[in-house]
Amino acid sequence: MAQTPAIALLEKHRIAHRIIEFSSAHHAGDYGRSAAAELGQSEQQVFKTLMVELDGKRLAVAMVPVAGQLDLKAVAQAFAARKARMANPQDAQRATGYVVGGISPLAQKKRAPSLIDASALTFDEIFVSGGRRGLEIAVAPQALIDLLDTTVAAISG
């Protein structure tokens, strides 16, 4: 099993987690829903990590269930920004050190402020990218929130 910076961070902080590898060959561009199907998990419990740009300047992380859509107005409000938009994929890859479809909220190259949809707290564990396509990490949402100093908000529409 490949070690990624995301897995190394969880191990360093002794945070309980499970690592699940699966074939990422049939994603057709929708990595999150493909991951949920491969894992046999609800699309509400598998979270995608999205990079957003706030006020045209700084990047931030937003984690939402793959079943939902990111509410950019709610993201802007939660970050006290005037506007939020999806980050350019190349900018996201450069800032995180991960490829699109495998961006983990954990151990990004440049630490960015983060939000997670409040629905995460309804689960004992959620699934987030482990840092590459076809690698997911199951972790308690509160452990993830505490480790990343993440803000919880209703950001999924």
Rank of each mutant, 00 (worst) to 15 (best):
A2M: 10
A2C: 03
A6I: 05
L9T: 10
L9Y: 05
L9W: 08
L9E: 13
L9K: 11
K12D: 13
H13C: 09
R14I: 03
A16V: 13
R18P: 00
I19E: 14
S23Y: 01
S23T: 10
H26G: 11
H27M: 10
Y31L: 05
Y31H: 13
Y31W: 11
A35F: 00
E43I: 05
Q45I: 13
K48C: 09
T49K: 10
M51Q: 09
M51H: 00
V52A: 07
E53F: 03
G56L: 12
K57Y: 02
R58E: 14
A60M: 09
V61K: 05
A62T: 10
P65K: 09
A67W: 00
A67G: 01
G68A: 15
K73H: 10
A74G: 06
A74P: 01
A74D: 05
R82T: 11
R82G: 15
K83G: 08
K83V: 13
A84G: 02
M86F: 15
P89M: 12
P89H: 12
A92W: 04
A92E: 06
Q93Y: 02
G97A: 14
V100A: 05
V100E: 00
I103T: 07
I103N: 04
S104D: 07
P105F: 08
L106V: 04
L106P: 08
L106A: 09
A107C: 02
A112T: 01
P113G: 03
L115W: 04
D117H: 04
D117V: 11
A118M: 12
A118H: 13
L121S: 11
F123Q: 07
S129M: 09
G134A: 09
E136A: 12
A140L: 01
A140N: 05
P141R: 05
Q142G: 03
Q142E: 14
Q142V: 09
A143L: 08
D149N: 15
T151V: 03
A153Q: 03
